[in-house]
Design a protein around this nucleic acid. Structure first.
Lengths: 226, 226
DNA sequence: CGCGTCTTTGAGAAACATCAACAGCGGTGG
DNA sequence: CCACCGCTGTTGATGTTTCTCAAAGACGCG
């Protein structure tokens, strides 16, 4: 008796409890505030803490030798960011909107002693991240641009979509170039996919950063079609 | 000692020590042997242990609704397989060659108490895996088929390539379809990339499963060109 | 040796990238 | 408050790449 992964992985916000210091007082002291465009860390920085997003949206990216930017992930509230690989940040991270984050100590103890709660938390967060990345890999494995864009929208719709009397809304704080970099496409192709969905009646685009999903099921069909 | 690792991620075999039960006796009891084609686990299985590959090559894959197979990773000796997501296997895993694996207990304790060594090990393995997956994401973000195939060959070359007096050899126990599924391409496209490299003098193909790298630097250049 | 499977090759169609120009929007300064 | 300017996003036309469909060759296995 288990649920299909797709659905569960998409709503991961409150899944991982913070390390067992719940009684140690408010975490205000460890909060970080970022303005849009500010960097939280850079690739190669030494990593002693990780972050949980409280508010805002962040972008994790890597830059190849020739300057091509690959977007690894977007960080939404509830997400854990900055998991260290060999003790170092593995990506750049900057804020797409004003953001508030909670810093969590997360250095792996050299000895196996001590920090059991931390290690457990780290492991849980990392395993969660792996699941999300595998989902993303599956998305990138799909060859069609429309499928990738539709999949992207469906994920956002389920995670951060808001429904009111006018429809199901998604805000897109990232640029088309960011979306393209995330999906392995070009900005023009992403734009054309949006236009295609709009002309097909699947979505409306009140503005470039605001998507109204008119036919969620149809959009999901596009995303999951072979 | 010939290899120069661009990234430490490529030589991850001996990086993560087993949990702190080194004195608890030989691990023979926990070894698993698989024949080629046998499954180690399936997506959705409950996961109480993880595995470290001792010998052989395994394939981790997921199957979409419509039967399209996405290969998530290949498991080579030293790799950790089967990290649980929400306590369940997130992929299928089957052996491409006869394989020997060591089972490692790795259930995250519900309470934060106990299993500090296990949690630390799990966290280290998971973080390592994240780094590897981010590398792969960067590869998939590249648009060109030849770049992806070249990148794939370079990674294998550095991890499992063997040099003798006749050249630098790579065995490919996986099919072209597996490689295609891993890189988000079609088998024909993968085959054409191999042919292209062969005609360009970068590699030789004594058989479909045996690659001899003639110009490693040139191949790496193809892999990392924008 | 025959057979099925995997790989390679070919020709054609479709998709995406590229190059280029325009529109829309927000911000700035007059 | 409005005009201007720059940036992002959109649209169009063209070229390249890859996918698709098809068939022949190579290889391993019984």
């Amino acid at each position: 008796m288990y649920v299909t992964f797709d659905s569960d992985l998409l709503s991961r916000a409150p899944a991982i409890p913070l390390p067992g210091t719940a009684a140690s007082g408010p975490l205000r002291d460890h909060q970080v505030r970022l303005k849009a465009g500010q960097f939280l860390f850079h690739q190669g920085d030494e990593a002693r803490t990780i972050y949980r997003v409280s508010e805002g949206v962040l972008r994790l990216s890597r830059v190849t030798e020739r300057g091509h930017e690959q977007v690894i992930a977007f960080g939404y509230p509830g997400d854990i960011l900055g998991l260290p690989v060999r003790g170092l940040r593995n990506t750049d991270c900057d804020a797409l909107t004003p953001a508030v984050l909670t810093a969590i100590p997360a250095h792996l103890p050299e000895t196996s002693s001590g920090g059991a709660a931390e290690a457990t938390f780290l492991a849980a967060a990392a395993l969660w991240e792996i699941g999300a990345m595998q989902e993303h890999l599956t998305t990138l494995g799909r060859t069609s641009a429309r499928e990738r864009v539709a999949s992207f929208l469906v994920v956002l719709m389920r995670r951060v979509g808001t429904r009111d009397d006018t429809g199901l809304h998604i805000e897109l704080p990232m640029s088309r170039a960011d979306i393209a970099g995330f999906l392995g496409l070009r900005t023009e192709t992403v734009s054309r996919a949006f236009t295609d969905f709009r002309q097909s009646g699947l979505i409306a685009l009140p503005s470039a950063q605001h998507v109204t999903v008119l036919k969620p099921e149809a959009l999901a069909d596009v995303a999951e079609s072979d």
